[in-house]
Structures are given as structure tokens and as C-alpha cells.
Design a protein around this nucleic acid. Structure first.
Length: 982
RNA sequence: GGGCCCUUAGCUCAGGUGGUAGAGCACUGUGCUGAUAACGCAGGGGCCAGUGGUUCGAGUCCACUAGGGCCCA
């Protein structure tokens, strides 16, 4: 009886993976897994939300592999889990893409289109891509409760943030501040530090200008200053010098210039130093500003101030200060009480009061400013300057610095608490903690507002009288609403609907609208430890699932983003970290070591990877990689990994082939431990050592060590266990030795398949169905419903494993000696001498003699403490030496000849299309030498070729005939299949 | 300017607690031919970035230098 489905020589992922997906869908295995574990001890995983703003990339698949792997592992251990996936929905990134779809250029286009319609478009886009990402995730084998994914645009999420902000307000942490912020004119919004530092700089070349500020009260005497942002000169109110730096007055072409001595070279040749002095002497010096004729400059007194941050490494050592146009300038201006001029509208154009510059875009006026300075005689020199300049991380537009009113959460009072939370967490790798603490030490106040449309509606209501309050819930809003509730009711808490609601000022009684701003999107992602566990509406549920045991995300960026947001928000709400362990992984690059870019042709899409290499292969590439290192991903590494999988598949295929021939049902095998031979016990020891390691390493969230150990094990299984055990499967006796071999190989395969299930869910399911379900109807009907293997310590025998290592080393030397003597393994040899490495006793290796003799085709192996006989071919390594006796007797030669013959006949069997178990009649004729060899090894020949009869007369009706040379002897061969007759 | 990580064979990477360098790919030779559009074995190829230290002994621990990456200012 045949138990197993025949196996193709190679796994076809294109056929297997979709079939297994259908199998899971029809069998509802995922939901049955959840039900099976319900009520057990919990494993709490929190999914960091993926931005649902485009198709997923292969780098997402890396993270999803970890997420799926550890959740599957914990599920196989029986842990109760939520399996909730998350989508990040709100924010500028979505708006930018929708604007592109609609062909919009600026915020005006959005307002014209209508905020309500625009917001609906944003929602639609998110829904579209969340569906696409879900489909992609299923393709890579991720098991999640897809019907129950969370969306950060949900009411639960938005109102939870309201609650959080109210908590902050109760602690007095929320304030409106005026600050100079990096500003994207196209997007019309400030860009926060968090966003800018991640990917917000580009190497750019701009024209820079040296210009002169006339010193008041002096003829033809000037401060020489330098700037790379000419538009900011319109708002200059001061010039800064370093108090301890040496400055000079230098004469050039009849004019006198003041600048740092070290930078005198910018004046060019012919400058003559009149005087040297410290910068501090310049303090208070008054000068004429470059754009005093503009209305906003009226009444502004320009003077020199002292500033320690002035550098003498570039420019002139005198820094132009415009407190309305630069962050540092603004701080300095505050200290020095300087006038603040804010020149730009939110679209980056000059305000109307800037005369001839009005409505011109700040980054477009460089030329006209130079011309104007030239006309006024203030221009000294223009030169190109290359520097890292901030750009909008979403739309790529160059940023300007703009004085704005934004809302902040004060972080100083929270800094220590959040740091304490961060220290409660186990960071993998460990340096993660230092990174996070470094960020926490240096972080500024959290700018939470954005002057945009699609996002969290900040629940801040501010009255013209200066009073403001934060509303903490929908219910509170309804209770306090004095206007517009009916127009809002029934809508999601988004713009424009929520803007209809107005409350009363508690100070002056006026009707107060919500501020127009939406929230920073990291608030959305930061609240999910609470919103997804119903913190506000179901405390019992929250208590059961909070804090989370595990999160895993890509390190770069997340220290200041998601890790930061969830730590900060959880610290405010519960004074603790919301997760216990975080596994971080590095950055994915293309195979050529460069970043993946569609335009460079080195980007790989998820679908393409799944189609070409298979989801399992891709997952294995990820799982075996050291997560702290950048991963170079591509089809080359895919091919390498595929071959490792193929080795395992070949062992599986080998087992199935012979188990079917023998009609073996492994479950019914009665095998006692005494039936197992040394190789069986060896591979079972290796197997159980592997299981033990897998458990230990996975419990420590270390998938790579397990994957690499599995690869080593599979190599041992294939190239040593199976190779040395083949004959036991081929032979015709169905004895206990054979049963032991089948049982051992089956056990090794099934256990490994279960070990691999979290790593490669498809192929392990495929193999499990055939290896286990085919012969054991009582077994769970999916490998993912099985219990994860437990090591049987009884089988672990370190001594045996070490001895086998020596044996394999010895065999390796034997092969090397044969190689050196150029005698193929097929030719039997009489003897090999072995000199062991001193502490090793010959008795220890005695039991392995058969294995060694078989592998090297030797009659005898002799151990000795001395050197091997002189006429031997020797090989030595690490004080272990072998000597091969290469003399070939006629009898040995005859045996070699028959072996060669066997090989030829096997090839013929194959070409004739025989099944491996078909019996044959064999015709064989040749020289007397051949005839004699056959006579001598007749039994061997029959056994190996499954010949029921060896004929020396030509066959009638031969299936295949051939004339060959065997060891230079001509031989005629013919085969005929024997019809099975019951 | 400060902090963190990395630097091992031509390429991609392994190398707990310090004890005479490993794998896969590629290359060369070769074997097997009942796992065969596979597989095995063998070989060449590394002063483990450099320099100092600790140690009987350092790829491994410490310091510094150089190159690469990330973060902060």
C-alpha cells in the first residue's frame, strides 16, 4: 500500500503557495488556531501601523516576516494572541498623493475643491491601499486577523488622542508657541524636527552672497557679511560676531571692511590690514540695513551683537541675523531683544507690505535681490555654495524657515519619566536603548499641529481673548457645544465637519471655534497601544492586553518616531513603557549595495519577489539574516537560499520515493531504541540539539541563529545521514534495521518541518500534509495547528556527535588520499591505516569502522599509533593522519569492474524509463575477464540492478541494448523488464 | 563637534563566556549517476582594516587611527 503522494524533484512555489493559501482559506486554519489557543496564557504583540498610502515594498516584507514568524511560533506554543494588523491613515503623506492624483498645486486648490470632498478622497485612498497591502501580506504568508485590522483614522483612535491631549493639558503641558520652523511652502505646513532629520536633507548648490553693511557714522566703512539665503536679508535686524574671535579693519580699493582675521582671504588680493581687535569691541556698533527702504524695516535699529556660535570656518565671521527667518536667529533675537520681522506668507511668498517683493516666492528672488544690492552698492561678490539643505520629506520642495504659531507639548517635565520608561524595555539589539535615550535627552518640545486638512482634528478651542481649552472626548464636546453640533453629528471627527462645533469661552463667554490645525501623525501611531485595546471603553480588555510583550520595526527613524511616540504617550497615560521587548532591524538595500530605486532598475516589488523566488524563499532570506546589519536583497541571494531549501526537499523526496516502494507507514512502525543504529542515534541527537537551540533562540527573538542552525542540520542530514544510510532503504529485506532507518528519517523530516513552520509556512505545510496527514488521520490537519517540537534530551548525545565529527574528518582525509592517488571511490581498496590524534583511543572509533569502510570503499581499516607503511598514499591534518594502500589485486579489480558495470546498467534502466523498483532480466557479455568478474560478484550485481536473471545469451525482445567500454573492456548489455505477475 | 554600529577569502556573510580562521556563491579539479534540469569530494584563495596595549595566548577584551554607515548638535 502506498501512503504518500509522489513528490516532484523540485518544489514549485508557484504551484504550492497559491494551493496552500486556498487550503487555509477553505479550512479556516487561522481562525481555528485562534480558537484553539483562546483562554491560554497570552502573547501580546503590537503591530506598528504601516502607512496605507501605496503598495508595500519588499522592505516591509522583511519586518512582516519577523512579525509573522514570532506570532506563529508563539501560537504553536499555545499562546493566546490577537493577531491584529494596523494601518496608518492620516497625515500629509496621504494628502500629497491625493493632491498629485487630482493635479493640485497648492492648498488653494484643495480649498476650492472643498475640504469635505478632499478628505473623502484621502479616506478612499487609504482604504484602497489597505486592501492592496492586505492582499500582499497574505501572499507572503502572513497570518493576521485581516477582518479586524485597526485604522488610525478610526473614531476610537482619534478620540483616544483627544483623551491623551486633555491629560497633557491638565498637566499644563500644552501651549501655543511662536517659533521659527522649517516650512514647506508647497504643502503650506511646518515640518517638525522628527520629520526633517529622518530623510529631510539634500546636497544642494545655491548662489551665496558677500555683501556690505555700511557702518553708521563712518565714511566708506562696512561690515562684510555672507549669506546663502538672500531672501532673508529683507528681514535683517542684526549682525553677530564672536566675542573672542580676532577681527580686522582692512582697506581695499579705498573702502574699509570689518571681518574676521582668519577669513581675510575673502577680500581677495590687495587688502591691507589697518587694525586688529577682538569681536567683543564691535558690540553695539550700528549699521545701515540692506533693505531699510521696505516698510517692515521702518524704525528698526540694526546693531552688532555678540554670539558664541559664530564660526570662523566659512563666510566672513560676521553673521547676518534675521530673527524671523531662522531658528537660531530667533533664539538669539529673543535673548538680545531684537526686532522680529516675519516676511513670508504660508505659501512662501512675501507679504504685501514688502513692496516690490510682495507676492514673489522667497526662493525665486535671489537674482532680483542681487540686482537690487548691486544697484545700492552693497553687493561685494557672489559665489556658488554647496551644502546640505533641508527639503520637504514628502514632496521634496526646498524648505524655508518661517515664523509661525504652532501648538506644542512641553517635553521637559516628561523627559525623565519617558527615559525611565525606555529603560524598562528590553532593546534588541542593546544599543537601541542608548539611541533612544540619546534622542530623549535632546528632544525639543513636541510640535503637534499642522496647518493641513486630513488628520486628527486637534481638540483645541482658542478664544480671541487668549483663553484656550482642550476637549477630551466626543461626549464632552457635545456637552459643551453651543453651536453646530447638529451639523457635525454623524460624521467622523475630521475636518471640515468637526469645525462646525463651537464652544463657549470660559473667560469672556464668546463663541469659540476649534483651531484649524490637524495633528502630527505620530500622535495617531503613538496612541495605538491604548486605542486598539479599548483603553477608554473596556478597561478589562485593556488590562488583559497591556503592556505588549513584543514589537518589531525597522530601527532607522523609529527612535524619534514610533518608539518615541508610544513611549511618550504611554508615559503620560500610565507612567510605563507600553512594550517589554523591541526587536529592531536595519535597512534593506538592493543587491548592488545601493538604495532600491525604481528608476535605477534595482527595486523589487513584493509580487515580483513572490512570483520569481517564492514567499518562503524570501522569508528565509530575511529570517537567516542578522537583523542589526543592512540587508542586500535580490535574486542572487534568493537563488542561493533556494538551493538550501532544495537540499531539504531532496531528502524529503528521497524518503517519499522509498517509503512508497516499501509501502511503509511510519506511524505504524514498531521501532525500539535498540533497533536504531549509530547513524540513527547520531542524527536524532543532532535533531534534538537543534530543537533545543531553536526553542532557546526563538524565545530570545533570535531567528537568524535558528535558521543558520537548521541549514547546518539539513546539510548533515543530506550529506551524511542519508548518504550513509541509502543502502538501508534500497535493500529488499524488510527488517528492523530498515524500519529503524525509515522511522529515524521520517522523525527527522517531520520534526524539522514543524520547526520550520513559522519560517516557511507554505512549504512546511505542503510537506506536513504529505509526511504526516497521509498516514496519520488523527494528526492536526495543518502543521500550524501542531505543537512546536520539544527536545527529547534522552536523544542528545554530545559524545556521539563529537565522535562523528572525528569520523567525518577522517573520511575527508581518506577522500583526499584517494584524490591524490587518483583512484576513484568505485574501485575498492584493500586497506587504510589511521593514526589517531593522541588523546583519542582507537576503541572509541571501532564502532564506526563500517561507516568508514563503506564511505571510502575499503576492505579494512587499521588503527596504529605509528606512521603508516611507506608505500601508502598519506594525508594529514591536525595530527590526524591516514595512509591508503593503493595496490589493487585482481580480485579488487574485478569488484571495481562489476561496480562500474552496475553503474552502466543503472543508467540504462533510467533511459529505458523503468521504475526504480522494476525487476529485470539482464543480458551481459564481454571478454573472459568481464565474464569472470561477473561470475565472482553475481549476487552483488543482481541485487544492485534488481535482476531476477542474468543471461549470457542475447535477449529476445530487449527493451534497451547497449555496447559500452568498462575499464577498457568492451561489454554488451541488454535489459528487459519483468512483468509483475501479482 | 559628540554618540552608536560596521570593517573576516573575489562576492554575500557565520564566527556565546579569548585557545592554532569557517560557510555559501564564484573559480579549478574530480567523483557519483536508484535524490539526477540534482548531489558529493577535493583544491587554490585571508598577516580577520591599521597601530599599540592586557594576556602564556586576541578575529574575540581595551585604547587610538583610517575607511563605511547611522544618529545627535
Amino acid at each position: 500500500m502506498v501512503f504518500f503522494k509522489p513528490v516532484s524533484p523540485q518544489p514549485n512555489h508557484r504551484e504550492i503557495e497559491p494551493r496552500i493559501l486556498r487550503f487555509w482559506e477553505e479550512g479556516r486554519h487561522f481562525y481555528r488556531l485562534i480558537e484553539k489557543n483562546q483562554g491560554n496564557e497570552k502573547f501580546r504583540f503590537l503591530d506598528g501601523p504601516i502607512t496605507a498610502n501605496g503598495p508595500m515594498g519588499v522592505h516591509h516584507a522583511w519586518g512582516r516576516t519577523y512579525k509573522d514568524l514570532f506570532q506563529r511560533y508563539k501560537a504553536m506554543l499555545g499562546f493566546d494572541q490577537r493577531f491584529q494588523n494596523g494601518f496608518d491613515c492620516q497625515g500629509l503623506w496621504v494628502e500629497v498623493e491625493v493632491e498629485k492624483e487630482l493635479g493640485f498645486k497648492s492648498k488653494k486648490d484643495i480649498e476650492k475643491f472643498g475640504i469635505a470632498r478632499f478628505v473623502e478622497k484621502c479616506k478612499e485612498r487609504v482604504m484602497r491601499f489597505s486592501r492592496i497591502q492586505t492582499r500582499q501580506s497574505i501572499l507572503i504568508g502572513q497570518w493576521m486577523d485581516w477582518e479586524n485590522s485597526y485604522y488610525t483614522m478610526s473614531e476610537e483612535n482619534n478620540y483616544s488622542i483627544w483623551f491623551f491631549l486633555k491629560k497633557c493639558h491638565e498637566r499644563g503641558l500644552i501651549y501655543e508657541g511662536t517659533d521659527v520652523m522649517p516650512w514647506c511652502a508647497r504643502c503650506g505646513t511646518a515640518i517638525s524636527d522628527m520629520e526633517i532629520a529622518t530623510e529631510g536633507y539634500r546636497e544642494l548648490t545655491h548662489p551665496s552672497v558677500f555683501l556690505r553693511f555700511p557702518v553708521i557714522g563712518k565714511e566708506r566703512e562696512y561690515l562684510l557679511v555672507w549669506t546663502t539665503t538672500p531672501w532673508t536679508l529683507t528681514s535683517n535686524t542684526a549682525a553677530a560676531v564672536h566675542p573672542e574671535l580676532v577681527y580686522v579693519r582692512a582697506k581695499k580699493d579705498g573702502d574699509v571692511y570689518i571681518l574676521a582675521k582668519e577669513l581675510l582671504r575673502v577680500l581677495g588680493a590687495g587688502a591691507e590690514v589697518i587694525e586688529e581687535f577682538l569681536g567683543s569691541r564691535l558690540a553695539g556698533l550700528r549699521y545701515q540695513g540692506p533693505f531699510d527702504e521696505l516698510a517692515p524695516q521702518a524704525g528698526v535699529e540694526h546693531r552688532v551683537v555678540l554670539w558664541k556660535d559664530v564660526s570662523a570656518s566659512e563666510g566672513t565671521g560676521i553673521v547676518h541675523i534675521a530673527p524671523g527667518c531662522g531658528k537660531e536667529d530667533f533664539l538669539l533675537g529673543k535673548e538680545e531683544g531684537l526686532a522680529v520681522i516675519a516676511p513670508l506668507n504660508d505659501d512662501g511668498t512675501f507679504k504685501p507690505e514688502f513692496g516690490w517683493l510682495a507676492e514673489k516666492y522667497a526662493l525665486d528672488v535671489t537674482r532680483v535681490i542681487f540686482d537690487d544690492l548691486e544697484k545700492k552698492g552693497l553687493l561685494y561678490r557672489v559665489e556658488d555654495y554647496t551644502h546640505r539643505y533641508p527639503v520637504c520629506w514628502r514632496c521634496g520642495e526646498e524648505l524655508v524657515f518661517r515664523l509661525v504659531d504652532e501648538w506644542f507639548i512641553a517635553m521637559d517635565p516628561l523627559r525623565e519619566e519617558i527615559m525611565a520608561s525606555a529603560q524598562q524595555v528590553r532593546w534588541i539589539p542593546e544599543f537601541g536603548l542608548e539611541r533612544e535615550l540619546d534622542w530623549l535627552r535632546n528632544m525639543g518640545d513636541w510640535c503637534i499641529s499642522k496647518k493641513r486638512y486630513w488628520g486628527l482634528a486637534l481638540p483645541i478651542f482658542r478664544c480671541g481673548c487668549g483663553w484656550f481649552d482642550v476637549v477630551g472626548s466626543k461626549e464632552e464636546l457635545q456637552k459643551r457645544a453651543v453651536e453646530g453640533w447638529e451639523r457635525f453629528e454623524g460624521h467622523s471627527p475630521h475636518r471640515p465637519w468637526v469645525d462646525e462645533v463651537k464652544i463657549a469661552c470660559e473667560r469672556c463667554g464668546n463663541t469659540v471655534p476649534r483651531i484649524k490645525d490637524v495633528g502630527n501623525p505620530w500622535l495617531d501611531a503613538g496612541i495605538v497601544p491604548f486605542s486598539t485595546t479599548y483603553y477608554l471603553t473596556n478597561r478589562d480588555y485593556w488590562r488583559a492586553w497591556f503592556p505588549f510583550d513584543f514589537i518589531t520595526e525597522s530601527f532607522p527613524g523609529q527612535f524619534r518616531n514610533w518608539f518615541y511616540a508610544i513611549l511618550a504617550m504611554s508615559t503620560v497615560l500610565e507612567k510605563c513603557a507600553p512594550f517589554r521587548t523591541v526587536l529592531g532591524y536595519a535597512t534593506m538595500k538592493a543587491e548592488d549595495g545601493r538604495e532600491m530605486h525604481k528608476s535605477w532598475g534595482n527595486a523589487i516589488e513584493v509580487e515580483e519577489a513572490v512570483d520569481k523566488m517564492g514567499a518562503d524563499t524570501m522569508r528565509w532570506v530575511f529570517a537567516r539574516h542578522n537583523p542589526t546589519q543592512n540587508l542586500l536583497f535580490g535574486f542572487k541571494v534568493g537563488e542561493e537560499v533556494k538551493r538550501k531549501i532544495l537540499t531539504f526537499w531532496n531528502v524529503y523526496s528521497f524518503f517519499i520515493t522509498y517509503a512508497n516502494i516499501d509501502g511503509v507507514n511510519p506511524v505504524a512502525l514498531k521501532v525500539k531504541k535498540e533497533d536504531l543504529n549509530r547513524l540513527d542515534r547520531w542524527i536524532l541527537s543532532r535533531l534534538n540539539s537543534l530543537v533545543k537551540l531553536a526553542r532557546e533562540r526563538l524565545d530570545d527573538y533570535d531567528a537568524a541563529s535558528v535558521a543558520l542552525a537548521v541549514e547546518t542540520f539539513v546539510d548533515d542530514l543530506s550529506t551524511w545521514y542519508v548518504r550513509r544510510s541509502r543502502r538501508r532503504f534500497w535493500k529488499s529485506d524488510n527488517d528492523q534495521d530498515k524500519a529503524g532507518a525509515y522511522w529515524t528519517l521520517w522523525t527527522a523530516l517531520v520534526t524539522t518541518v514543524k520547526l520550520l513552520a513559522p519560517f516557511m509556512p507554505f512549504i512546511s505545510e505542503e510537506m506536513y500534509q504529505n509526511l504526516v496527514r497521509s498516514c496519520d488521520p488523527d494528526a492536526p490537519d495543518s502543521v500550524h495547528l501542531c505543537f512546536y517540537p520539544e527536545p527529547d534530551l534522552e536523544f542528545i548525545d554530545e559524545k556521539l556527535e563529537n565522535e562523528m565529527k572525528v569520523v567525518r574528518g577522517l573520511v575527508s582525509l581518506g577522500h583526499a588520499a584517494r584524490e591524490k592517488a587518483r583512484i576513484k571511490v568505485r574501485q575498492p581498496l584493500a586497506r587504510m591505516f589511521v593514526r589517531l590524534k593522541p588523546p583519542l583511543e582507537q576503541a572509541v572509533l571501532e564502532p564506526y569502522l563500517d561507516v568508514i569502510k563503506d564511505e571510502l570503499n575499503l576492505r579494512e581499516v587499521f588503527f596504529s599509533s605509528g606512521e603508516p607503511p611507506r608505500d601508502c598514499v598519506t594525508e594529514e591534518e591536525d595530527r590526524l593522519a591516514v595512509g591508503l594502500d593503493t595496490s589493487i589485486t585482481p580480485e579488487l579489480e574485478a569488484e571495481g569492474l562489476v561496480r562500474e558495470l552496475v553503474r552502466r546498467i543503472q543508467t540504462l534502466r533510467k533511459s529505458a524509463g523503468y521504475d526504480v523498483a522494476d525487476r529485470i532480466v539482464l543480458f551481459c557479455s564481454g571478454t573472459p575477464r568481464v565474464q569472470k568478474a561477473i561470475e565472482l560478484f553475481k549476487d552483488y550485481l543482481r541485487q544492485e540492478t534488481l535482476a531476477v536473471e542474468i543471461a549470457f545469451q542475447p535477449l529476445k525482445e530487449a527493451d534497451i541494448e547497449s555496447e559500452v567500454n568498462v575499464n577498457r573492456e568492451p561489454v554488451r548489455l541488454a535489459l528487459r523488464r519483468v512483468k509483475p505477475n501479482g
